[in-house]
Design a protein around this nucleic acid. Structure first.
Lengths: 198, 198
DNA sequence: GTCTATAAAATGATAGAC
DNA sequence: GTCTATCATTTTATAGAC
């Protein structure tokens, strides 16, 4: 690095943090946690590597901040869109799917991190275990409510259905990321129809 | 490393290669390509790191050798088991699923590498793209043959079905690796039944 | 076939000035 | 809030002896 880059623009901490989270999310999505260096993220943000660590104390803190922030923002978006609309299981899941279709970067972040974090030594190992349970529970509740309404067969096993739907969605995301010609939402919707989840 | 480890046992190249492939497969399965160091693999094999590179010229060569060898061995196993048995789509897929249930290490290797290799810079990027197409084509053929036999609805879209089944399988593997209490084969079989793939 | 030695580069993190 | 300087490690790969 040359002298030319010294004395960079000073920004409010909150703004800088947002900026770092954004760049880091893209980097972790492409190269994973281990394949991403702090220096690379710092360079793209336009600060030095110690400058980055001033805002996030360590690489572990950074990845967790990225995942939690992105997860929260996304959930809020979908919940807001369906607020008041007594949404069915299908409404809720398809809203997520369509939203995902517009955000390959986000999908990639979670797909790559979900696999990488299978390692108990990965900083987000517990995060993904809990996240998976949370999502499954949410789907079980939705299915249960739809069964009470009589729009989904009472015979359907809630827990098994939740696992199956999450699996289908995750698997479709992986194939779609590898080959964008895959009709992620179309195939997911067909799967829902076959389950008679409407 | 101390002097005590010098002058290690000399082995036939073929044997040493097998040994390295085995240890490397486990390491890449746990920590991924980028999270695994050659030194770590070498140590577990019981050779020096340059000793390892004598057999596989680089880390890239090693990961590709691991994936190709494991993929081939597994496919051969299932094909051999179903040889002569005019196997249906269901037979073939369930044979793989049950086989996988006994080999979490292998499943993990491919699950982790499949995600990590989404990065075009990953050495196995093309490998996984082609592998996915190969698997999908194989399933399309099986479904097509079952449709001719009349045991699978002619209305079923072959390409879409292949994508859906691969997605379901991959997604179930991910959840099963994270939480072994997930009934991977049971849920997959239920999915097949709903597709009327028998 | 295996080793020691070493190069050459990259990485995460800390200390301290401004 | 940001930087320079620097440390301590780690990592892939090569050279050359046995």
């Amino acid at each position: 690095m040359t002298r030319a880059e010294a004395g960079r623009v000073r920004r409010p901490a909150a703004l800088r943090r947002e900026q770092i989270l954004s760049v880091a999310a893209d980097a972790f999505a492409v190269a994973g946690f281990r394949g991403t260096s702090l220096a690379e993220v710092a360079a793209k943000v336009g600060v030095s590597q110690p400058g980055l660590l001033h805002h996030f104390g360590s690489k572990e803190v950074l990845i967790l901040a990225v995942l939690e922030q992105r997860d929260l923002a996304d959930e809020e978006y979908v919940e807001a869109r369906l607020e008041g609309v007594d949404a069915t299981t299908r409404d809720w899941l398809m809203a997520f799917c369509r939203r995902n279709e517009t955000q390959p970067g986000l999908v990639r972040l979670f797909t790559v991190q979900a696999a990488e974090s299978l390692d108990p030594a990965h900083p987000a190992h517990d995060f993904f275990f809990e996240r998976n349970q949370r999502v499954r529970n949410r789907i079980e509740q939705l299915v249960s409510r739809d069964q009470e309404k009589g729009i989904v067969p009472a015979s359907l096993d809630q827990a098994g259905t939740a696992v199956e739907l999450v699996a289908l969605m995750n698997g479709l995301q992986l194939q779609w990321l590898r080959d964008p010609s895959v009709d992620m939402c179309g195939i997911f919707e067909a799967g829902l129809r076959r389950l008679e989840v409407r």
